[in-house]
Simulated scan of single mutants.
Amino acid sequence: MELRNETPDDWWGIESLYDLTFAPGRKALSSYRLRDDVPPVPAFCRVFATDDGVIGGAIRCWPIRVEDHSALLLGPVAVHPTRQGEGLGGLLIRDVLERAGPAGWPRVLLVGDAPYYERFGFKLLNGVVMPPPTNPARVLGFGAWAGIRGRVRKRLD
Rank of each mutant, 00 (worst) to 15 (best):
D68I: 08
A49G: 01
P131Q: 07
G150I: 03
D95A: 07
K27C: 05
V41L: 04
W11C: 13
R149I: 13
L74K: 03
D51I: 08
M130E: 14
M130F: 15
P132E: 15
E118H: 14
E15R: 15
W145R: 01
W12A: 15
M1G: 03
P106F: 04
T50W: 03
V129C: 14
L156T: 15
R4G: 00
N5I: 03
W62A: 05
R83Y: 15
R35M: 09
A100S: 11
R149F: 12
K123M: 12
L29I: 13
K123N: 12
R4V: 02
P136G: 13
L125Y: 11
G13N: 02
T50M: 06
R65F: 10
L156V: 05
R26K: 01
L34V: 00
Y116T: 04
D68L: 12
R83I: 09
E67G: 13
D68G: 07
G25Y: 15
D19R: 15
I93L: 12
S31W: 10
E67P: 00
A43V: 01
L97F: 11
P132C: 00
D36V: 12
D36L: 10
L156C: 08
L156M: 15
A71T: 04
G143P: 01
S30R: 09
V128W: 06
P39G: 04
E86I: 02
L34I: 01
G112D: 06
A23D: 15
L3H: 03
T82I: 08
R65P: 00
G25A: 14
K123L: 14
P133K: 11
D9V: 06
V79F: 09
G57R: 03
R65I: 07
G121L: 15
A146L: 15
V108M: 06
R138C: 14
R4D: 09
Y117N: 07
T7N: 02
P63Q: 00
R26Y: 04
R4H: 00
L97I: 00
A146W: 12
F120G: 01
P42Q: 06
G25W: 14
M130D: 08
G57P: 05
D9Y: 10
E118L: 11
Y116D: 00
T7C: 06
V54W: 01
A71F: 07
T50V: 06
S30L: 03
V79I: 13
R33E: 05
V77R: 11
P131V: 03
G147K: 10
G57E: 07
M130C: 08
V66E: 00
A146Q: 02
P136I: 12
G13I: 04
E118R: 14
L72Q: 13
D95W: 13
A23G: 12
R153Y: 06
T134P: 07
